[in-house]
Simulated assay, not measured.
Amino acid sequence: MAAAFTHGFILAFGLILPLGVQNVFVFNQGALQKRFIHALPVVLTASLCDTLLITLAVLGVSFVVLSSFLFKTILLSAGILFLSYMGWTTWRSIPGHDEEKKKAAEIFTPRKQIAFAASVSLLNPHAIMDTVGVIGTSSLQYDGVEKVAFTLASILVSWIWFTGLAAVGRFTGELDQTGRFMRIFNKISALVMWGAAGYMGTSLFNP
């Protein structure tokens, strides 16, 4: 059981580590919010979405769902729209420490955080397929308690990672008194989101 848990933990960590839209958004919200607790909606949503995807991948449900051409088309189209809008919103955000800049930066209410975090987690078929192809396939070698341990370890990584990422973002936001770093990071974040939307667009028109 220990081996299965370790395998799941290392595998999930390797998948979640690279820079992506989900990571960028969680870090960004951690940095822009006044307090860490205000970034909890994005942390909880991203973690819960990953928990859902990992569970479905292990159960094999997500593979069956994504085999539908219509569903994949709808998923891709929705993902492109969400990411395009998120990129535009992030590009326009103005982080800083005076009241006017703070007001402009705090565009993500808890409801928006939840909606956008869910969109970058669930409206990206490529990320879902990675979960299915790697975590789902790897889980096939385990049964019973070992499969449960593998799954729980994979899920635990998401919760630890997103909590830590938002915390690091909050720390960075506190250090960045001028807002210069976050302005640059926002531009990079927007480009990552638009790049992901463009990549999804090529998949939509060239299946």
Score class of each variant (00 low, 15 high):
residue 115 A to W: 09
residue 141 Q to S: 07
residue 143 D to C: 11
residue 158 S to P: 10
residue 179 G to R: 14
residue 169 G to E: 05
residue 143 D to G: 10
residue 131 T to F: 08
residue 175 L to H: 03
residue 133 G to D: 05
residue 156 L to F: 12
residue 177 Q to F: 15
residue 174 E to L: 14
residue 168 V to F: 15
residue 172 T to E: 07
residue 130 D to K: 00
residue 185 F to W: 10
residue 174 E to T: 12
residue 173 G to H: 04
residue 139 S to Y: 02
residue 119 S to T: 07
residue 179 G to N: 13
residue 189 S to K: 04
residue 120 V to I: 14
residue 142 Y to T: 08
residue 136 G to C: 07
residue 178 T to N: 09
residue 184 I to S: 13
residue 171 F to S: 05
residue 170 R to I: 03
residue 177 Q to H: 11
residue 128 I to H: 07
residue 189 S to D: 02
residue 161 W to A: 13
residue 176 D to L: 08
residue 172 T to P: 01
residue 173 G to E: 04
residue 170 R to H: 15
residue 135 I to G: 06
residue 181 F to S: 13
residue 124 N to S: 11
residue 115 A to T: 12
residue 132 V to R: 00
residue 176 D to R: 03
residue 175 L to V: 11
residue 183 R to S: 04
residue 177 Q to N: 06
residue 129 M to W: 06
residue 185 F to N: 15
residue 177 Q to I: 11
residue 135 I to V: 15
residue 135 I to R: 02
residue 142 Y to A: 08
residue 116 F to G: 00
residue 187 K to V: 11
residue 166 A to C: 11
residue 143 D to V: 09
residue 123 L to Y: 13
residue 143 D to Y: 14
residue 138 S to V: 04
residue 173 G to D: 07
residue 148 V to R: 03
residue 137 T to S: 09
residue 158 S to N: 10
residue 124 N to I: 01
residue 116 F to R: 01
residue 136 G to T: 06
residue 165 L to W: 00
residue 159 W to H: 03
residue 177 Q to M: 13
residue 144 G to I: 06
residue 153 A to N: 04
residue 121 S to G: 14
residue 114 I to C: 04
residue 129 M to A: 15
residue 132 V to T: 08
residue 171 F to H: 06
residue 126 H to N: 14
residue 155 I to P: 10
residue 184 I to H: 09
residue 160 I to N: 12
residue 139 S to C: 08
residue 151 T to P: 09
residue 158 S to D: 07
residue 117 A to R: 03
residue 189 S to W: 00
residue 154 S to Y: 07
residue 174 E to M: 14
residue 123 L to H: 11
residue 165 L to I: 10
residue 142 Y to F: 13
residue 143 D to N: 13
residue 163 T to W: 15
residue 177 Q to T: 05
residue 166 A to Q: 07
residue 153 A to P: 05
residue 159 W to M: 04
residue 188 I to K: 00
residue 146 E to R: 05
residue 124 N to L: 01
residue 188 I to M: 11
residue 144 G to A: 10
residue 176 D to F: 14
residue 164 G to E: 13
residue 166 A to F: 05
residue 146 E to T: 03
residue 136 G to Y: 00
residue 141 Q to E: 08
residue 124 N to M: 05
residue 144 G to W: 04
residue 129 M to V: 13
residue 150 F to G: 08
residue 120 V to S: 00
residue 127 A to C: 07
residue 150 F to H: 06
residue 118 A to N: 05
residue 119 S to L: 02
residue 147 K to Y: 09
residue 167 A to W: 14
residue 169 G to P: 12
residue 149 A to T: 05
residue 161 W to N: 04
residue 115 A to P: 07
residue 152 L to H: 15
residue 154 S to N: 10
residue 186 N to D: 13
residue 178 T to Q: 09
residue 114 I to G: 02
residue 178 T to E: 09
residue 119 S to E: 00
residue 160 I to M: 14
residue 183 R to A: 02
residue 135 I to N: 02
residue 181 F to G: 03
residue 140 L to A: 11
residue 122 L to H: 15
